[in-house]
Design a protein around this nucleic acid. Sequence first.
DNA 1: CTTGACATTCCATCTGAGTGGAAGGCATAC
DNA 2: GTATGCCTTCCACTCAGATGGAATGTCAAG
Lengths: 138, 138
Amino acid sequence: MRIGELADRLGVNPKTIRFYEARGLLPDPARLPSGYRDYGPEDESRLAFIKTAQRLGLSLDEIGEILAFKERGERPCGYVLSVLAAQLSDIDRRIGELVRLRAELVALKDRADQLATGDACYCGIVEHAGRISQTTTR
Amino acid sequence: MRIGELADRLGVNPKTIRFYEARGLLPDPARLPSGYRDYGPEDESRLAFIKTAQRLGLSLDEIGEILAFKERGERPCGYVLSVLAAQLSDIDRRIGELVRLRAELVALKDRADQLATGDACYCGIVEHAGRISQTTTR
DNA sequence: CTTGACATTCCATCTGAGTGGAAGGCATAC
DNA sequence: GTATGCCTTCCACTCAGATGGAATGTCAAG
């Protein structure tokens, strides 16, 4: 399949696929006689892996490392799983933060009427939001 | 107070404060006879607002819009709250995604032993992760 | 046989959020 | 009075992750 079809299937821009190739995340693909890139199911699953790993919160560099293990014929599982374990605790942290922020936002919304009157609104927002924990977002 | 003190108080780089000023997020501050920027409590709370709003997930542009309402003497609450409402649903979506990803990761970890044997590991990861919903992260 | 959609490469630019560094001014402490 | 540390401006650069555009090639349909 050509680049446009692969891109459509996975909902990415064809440029992005070439970009991943240039970054070493995707191997140099087979070429049709015309010179067009010719992708197969493995390429699709690899790209799907990249996109999934991105959803998991991995950077392209992290994904590249994982893929490099496979390239070298090693079993990546230990490494992958350690990355995943780190991601897991990171995700737990992020979920905790978001849940706290959510509670703050709900509280703010519930007080909308009071906050909406008077000119202390902006400050009210600040005051309320200021109580949010000081943890920073990744 | 001078820029360094303000920066220290809020744990930001002085450059970042000048950057916010250049972006229009902070007003041109008073100046000491020396030409040094001279900040007061309002500046501190405004900067704190910006940082808090960032933790809430707002971009600097969104924050700028909110602050512009205040600048124009309007009560921003309706707007702020609509932004916050949008943020709330976004946060709900992100929490949902993360919870799902978390479950996937836990499942992957639980199967570490099986996955760690054989060379289908990479594919196993892909297969498992591939089941993750197709929603994209913001 | 031309039109249009898609492909190629290469190079440049964008976004978002800063950060670095040079060249110089101010303030304070020894 | 000079060393030190913080301040000023201006310009450039970083990072991640793409995306845009120009110039050109390929291919299927009408």
